[in-house]
């Protein structure tokens, strides 16, 4: 039975009462700061991400949730003028250390974006794209992986008859589940999801939430969400961020019912945001 540690103060201001997983943390973020050119977007964020659990990142718009998520697989490298300080350890490796293979790092993580972004190719080609870039061409392996990933993303039954059709012909919800299938096809350890349901209707959102529930345990999931109910429903731990700072990070039920910080209370009860 995973237990909640006592509330503690690790970094400046942050309150922790995290639910521990069975396998320890997959990631340790220490004093992480990030600047876009001269504007600082993250201030001394420190948190551990428990392996196998679902961690939600919540907070008002512009508080740095996406920035933090994109720092984990170094997608922020694409933006000119980004500078970081502090440490981000994944399985003990400092991913911002010298000589890190960014491509190899990204292969250990799958990412799902706010807007579904399937490639203009067939459904199979979309799902097996991570294998394609690894140079795998064996048809049987590709087909097998596509089936497994599509089943994992609960999409198999809907598309099994049209695997070779263009993925852009799918509905929005199906496209997003396809992106999840693509993210898990490369067999990652961590899934990073940046508001995966914000562009979807309620039915599709429900399906994705069920899916996240099913993926729990197989993957460590970090999910950014704007939707309080969603965070409450799917996550084990929740991190509340405000103005680039991590305010409170702890057990989801506690965050939503009995937060230790006034600001969190105000946010989850909808007084601002």
């Amino acid at each position: 039975m995973p237990e909640t540690g006592p509330p503690s103060v690790r970094s400046e201001g942050t309150i922790y009462h995290v639910k521990r997983g069975r396998e320890g943390t997959v990631m340790e973020i220490e004093d992480f700061c990030l600047w876009y050119e001269l504007a600082q977007a993250l201030f001394n964020v420190s948190m551990g991400v428990e392996k196998g659990l679902v961690t939600a990142l919540i907070g008002p718009s512009g508080c740095g949730k996406s920035t933090l998520l994109r720092s984990i697989n170094r997608m922020n490298d694409l933006i000119d003028g980004v500078k970081v300080s502090g440490q981000m350890l994944v399985e003990g490796f400092d991913i911002y250390g010298p000589g890190v293979d960014v491509i190899a790092l990204r292969k250990t993580m799958g990412m799902v974006f706010q807007k579904p972004n399937p490639f203009p190719m067939s459904i199979t080609d979309n799902v097996t794209y991570p294998l394609k870039v690894d140079g795998i061409t064996d048809k049987r392996v590709l087909a097998q992986t596509a089936e497994t990933a599509l089943k994992a993303a609960a999409l198999w039954d809907e598309v099994k008859d049209r695997l070779h059709e263009n993925a852009l012909g799918l509905s929005g919800g199906q496209q997003q589940r396809l992106c999840i299938a693509r993210a898990v096809a490369g067999d990652p350890d961590v899934l990073l999801m940046d508001e995966p349901c914000s562009a979807l209707d309620p039915v599709a959102t429900g399906k994705i939430e069920d899916l996240i529930d099913e993926l729990r345990g197989k993957y460590t999931i970090l999910i950014v969400t704007h939707n309080m109910q969603q965070a409450a429903r799917v996550s084990d731990n929740t991190a509340f961020m405000y103005l680039g700072r991590l305010i409170e990070y702890g057990l989801t039920s506690t965050i939503f019912t009995n937060p230790r910080v006034e600001k969190t209370m105000e946010y989850v009860t909808g007084r601002f945001g």
Binding site: K115, N117, F119, V133, C179
Partner: peptide, 19 residues
Amino acid sequence: SSREGSLACGASKWQTVKY
């Protein structure tokens, strides 16, 4: 977003450009 999707899958820059 297409470029990001590809890079997030672990594709190199050249692979992203090519594919």
